[in-house]
Design a protein around this nucleic acid. Sequence first.
RNA 1: GGCCCCAUGGUCAAGCGGUUAAGACGGCGCCCUCUCACGGCGCAAUCAGGGGUUCGAGUCCCCUUGGGGUCACCA
Length: 484
Amino acid sequence: MKIRTRFAPSPTGFMHVGNLRTALYEYLIAKHEDGTFVLRIEDTDQERYVEGATDVIYDTLKIAGLKHDEGPDIGGDFGPYVQSERLSLYKPYAEELVKTGHAYYCFCTKERLESLKESGATGYDRHCRTLSEQEISDNLAKGIPYVIRQKMPLEGETTYNDLVYGDITVPNEDLDDQVLLKADGFPTYNFANVIDDHTMGITHVVRGSEYLSSTPKYNELYRAFGWDIPTYVHLPLIMGKTVNEDGTETVSKLSKRHGSTGFMDLINDGFLPEAIINYIALLGWAPSDNREIFSLEELTEAFDIHGISKSPSVFDYDKLEWVNAEHIKAMDLDTFTMHAGRYYEKFGITSDKFELLDEILKPRITRFTQLEEKLSFLGELADYDVSLFEHKKSKSSIESSKTMLADAIPLLENTEWTREAITEALKKYAEDHEIKNSVIMWPVRIAAAGVAVTPGGCAEVLILLGKEESLRRIRIGLDKIKEL
RNA sequence: GGCCCCAUGGUCAAGCGGUUAAGACGGCGCCCUCUCACGGCGCAAUCAGGGGUUCGAGUCCCCUUGGGGUCACCA
């Protein structure tokens, strides 16, 4: 049988990386077996509707490259794919359960439920479970609002199997008579989920491990309807760290308070979609070999449910950063230029310099957003301090720099403006004067750039600035120190 | 608190009864070097504790401890 998985987010306007990883694994599990990946929007909470929230879901999946085969926007044979458009579907199922004795009407008021909770009760006390036929029809006739609750077995235990966690057993008495149909006629998430997964032919229910303990309740539903129970794949949670006031650290389910944890936040911080996907795939899953850098296609090929781990994992920005850098280093020139384009444009860099920039910048950035800072020396010459000319390891001092800059000016004026020629000329000078290359390279680079740290060396900096500007800056540098 | 789950370095993790307990990130050191990176080499750092089972346990069982999740007319 062909695998069918589904991603069923609720439109909250925010796509968490935890949710995205769930979507990713659902995608990979299906696609590894050439199965079908379905998108279903779970919007049964009318009070939490957020304008434009479904677009965030579409945009995220699109940018991440997780292409769904069926969904609200593209249709499919099992639609509609938005729960609010399937509302009429659920009530009959709930009523069927009442008829077959697997569910019952509950007329308890919110106030009663509230006081029950305050009295320290664990779950619903099943008050309406034993109402007589007469009481029920009377209440119904009087138009008293009601919900439909699931009738759970009161004794024994339920065991089910999960592909990641193995057999899980839960005492039935701990199973709450959960609400299936709310007073407004809307199904609860728990109910709609089961109905939809079954009617949409979902074979593998993949979700976070927070559902581990409520899964028996779902299974009771499948049993009551006489439906096959799907294959379960529960995923370990992604955690975030927070520092407490006393300095200790706490880890908990990743949420907004852990910083930039939304997919779009990460994108804005300069992380590449493919790097984020790559990294989160590795959070809770390990390939059979030691590989760490994957494209989505490679992940699809390599993914294996047996590689999923059980323990929660902490989201590590440092590792993400490294993965991002690896993806940048693996880029071809055109792709790199495409990402760097807005920064090149900002500094007025012409296309003849792209190849050189690509080469020197690639190994030096971990995110494209760093380009602004890396290229800033190409803008206005900074009013730097003369102490920059001193560098012990390069054997450069203010004193030596006076000579070097003074000699470099005529030397460079007569040098062809290519990387090789400049390097050659400077090295030749060093050789002729029996000094280390750095004695001349250092001050020239500093004078040209006006900052201590530059991407690339002396020759690269000079090329990027151009002959005229380079010489202008070197003269300024000389002026700064010659009277000292 | 009840129930469920988890437990290898700071982090991600390999391991699926016999290994000098991989690898990666991060950290540190060295090399390369005109700066910063990249790259190369190396170092430090892990089986939570206690009982069993076994010729042999990181691997299996139990307990303890620790961590997480969950207990809504939210999803």
